[in-house]
């Protein structure tokens, strides 16, 4: 009987470790998911490491559209300076967004971005971009933010992506300290700033 109890206890311990392992796996899914998205371009994740300059320019063209969004918590105006351009595949291009701090205190923003259709992500290469760093704007300051990019001609070799004629690049700016100190005072400022800015973004 004592042996039986021992065996049961050991078995229960093994099962409890399985439970602990699954909890661990749930947390491990965060870095794994990130890695997976970066490697595969899943969900429109752009490759931001190991970008190399374009080596080949094709005659084929694709439209690139620019989209901008802004978090209600950030008192910025933010919009692209061009809505749509037609680019040659492989050709390095420059595009600009413009941001303005319409609040009354310096505000730091950080952009997240993706491309649609998602499957175009592996072929959309950004060489230089404002999104990679945080941006701090003084009240009233206007900056234009450049993006240097090209569309890989390989996009026409891939069966799944060859029908793509337009790619939309989308940016959303959020406050960099999304819940850091001073949020409360920032929020008040933002609300008043939004109220006085009829067309913010």
């Amino acid at each position: 009987m004592a042996r039986r109890r021992n065996e049961n206890g050991r078995f229960a311990f093994v099962l409890a470790s399985v439970v602990a392992g699954m909890v661990g796996l749930a947390y491990a899914s965060v870095p794994l998911y990130e890695l997976f998205c970066q490697v595969t371009g899943f969900g429109g994740t752009l490759n931001t490491t190991n970008v190399s300059p374009s080596t080949f320019v094709s005659d084929k063209t694709v439209k690139v559209r620019f989209d901008s969004n802004i978090s209600p918590k950030l008192a910025w105006r933010f919009q692209p300076l061009q809505r749509e351009v037609t680019v040659k595949l492989g050709e390095e291009n420059l595009a600009f967004y413009e941001a303005e701090n319409v609040g009354i205190v310096p505000l730091t923003g950080q952009a997240v971005f993706n491309v649609t259709p998602f499957k175009a992500a592996p072929y959309f290469t950004k060489i230089e971009c404002f999104c990679f760093t945080e941006q701090t704007l003084e009240p009233g300051q206007v900056v234009s933010m450049p993006i240097q990019y090209y569309v890989d001609p390989e996009i026409f070799e891939d069966l799944n992506t060859r029908e793509i004629r337009a790619i939309t690049l989308s940016y959303t700016f959020y406050p960099a300290d999304i819940d850091g100190e001073g949020t409360e005072s920032d929020e008040k400022v933002n609300v008043s700033a939004r109220a006085t800015t009829p067309n913010s973004g």
Binding site: L15, V18, G21, V23, L25, A26, V30, Y174, I178
Partner: peptide, 29 residues
């Protein structure tokens, strides 16, 4: 045994997102 711990992990992430400043599900961060 295999499914519930994953829910427990996800719920804990949500709990810390809501109360302790983590950003597991916060697009802006």
């Amino acid at each position: 045994l295999l499914a519930l711990p994953v829910l427990a992990g996800a719920l804990t992430m949500l709990l810390t997102d809501r109360n302790f400043g983590t950003h597991f599900f916060e697009a802006g961060a």
